[in-house]
């Protein structure tokens, strides 16, 4: 904000009303941090999607056991840096000789799959419950509110750990394929089911003020029903806070998924995941530090890139931001 009074410049172009989307997009395009983070993210997502093709191109395979790369007796990778060579650019796993680079790429794929699905689940549940809670007020609002308090009071990590075995079996019994398919489904479900109250609170707060606005009143006066008001009138005004929350939630879930796999309730070998790789590294990192640092660094880069992008999106969508 400048304090000096300036003569109005000659309008070089026609003055137009701009939507929030246009303003935000304009700001994002000038934000160098966002551009950098976005480029990294696009690369990460592309790499995750095309992991099988990329691995074939380089000639590595995440499941293939390579006995020639490891020591016959102890299973120690031959050569420095965990047996890094032209065949295995980032080295191989202890004991199995599986390629680290390929496992990293496939691990990224699973991480993103779980984090994205869980985030979508949170958005759906959080938005629906938040809108209903904020619009209904009274008993419904109080009931949903206390229910959310209940969920938020649960020690999330502990419950997820304790129930993983039993609930994974139940999912299998319900027809989800056994093994990692059940485990992935379980992770997505628990992350989603325990995560939505935070978003629901944000949405509820927004709805409380939106419902008093004139456009809701006018919709009511032309006889619109409640579902129409909720989802056609109010919902479109909520996408900014929801988008901001989602962009910041996704990286959290990538880290949480890794933590859960680290504690042993996530993805099972031979399927690769960041957490499992880091968890295995504990046994060997005094001898092969790269087991710890390679997956750890990639994990941090992914999470930082998402957080940077999320931050920029939040600033860009903030009407109060003076830029």
């Amino acid at each position: 904000m400048s304090t000096a009074v300036e003569a109005p410049a000659e309008p070089t172009q026609e003055i137009k009303g701009r939507s929030l989307t246009q303003i935000a997009w304009g700001r994002l395009r000038r934000d160098k941090t966002f551009i950098a983070a976005a480029i990294v993210l696009v690369i990460i997502v592309l790499v995750a999607i095309f992991a099988p093709q990329i691995c074939r191109l380089i000639g590595v395979d995440p499941y293939e056991l390579d006995a020639s790369a490891i020591d016959d007796s102890g299973g120690k990778p031959i050569g420095p840096w965990g047996g890094a060579s032209l065949d295995h650019p980032l080295g191989v796993e202890w004991g199995t000789g599986r390629d680290i680079l390929a496992r990293l790429l496939y691990g990224l794929r699973i991480s993103l799959l779980i984090a994205t699905s869980a985030t979508i689940l949170v958005i759906i549940l959080g938005t629906v419950f938040g809108i209903i809670s904020g619009y209904a007020r009274g008993f419904t609002d109080a009931a949903i509110g206390r229910f959310m308090d209940l969920i938020l009071a649960f020690p999330f990590l502990l419950i997820v750990l304790a129930l993983s075995g039993a609930l994974t079996q139940r999912l299998t019994a319900l027809g989800v394929p056994e093994g990692n398919a059940s485990r992935i489904t379980y992770l997505i479900l628990v992350l989603g089911l325990f995560g939505w109250p935070y978003l629901a609170r944000i949405v509820r707060g927004e709805v409380l003020s939106l419902r008093e606005r004139e456009f809701v009143e006018s919709a009511l006066s032309i006889g619109a029903g409640t579902p129409r008001i909720l989802f056609r009138e109010i919902l479109p005004n909520l996408w900014a806070p929801i988008l901001v929350y989602a962009t910041l939630l996704l990286p959290t879930y990538i880290a949480v998924e890794a933590a859960l796999s680290f504690l042993g309730v996530g993805i099972l070998p031979p399927e690769p995941s960041f957490g499992a790789m880091l968890s295995e590294s504990v046994q060997y990192f005094t001898l092969v530090p790269s087991y710890l640092f390679i997956p750890g660094t990639v994990l941090v880069i992914v999470v930082v890139a998402f957080n940077l992008a999320g931050d920029s999106v939040r600033d860009a969508l903030d009407p109060k931001a003076a830029k």
Partner: peptide, 21 residues
């Protein structure tokens, strides 16, 4: 921002690796 993004178990292991081992 980097600190906010660090997974606790990774930074924990890194600290153990360098400082203790």
């Amino acid at each position: 921002l980097v600190g906010y993004s660090l997974p606790s178990f990774f930074i924990g292991l890194v600290v153990v690796y360098f400082i203790i081992i």
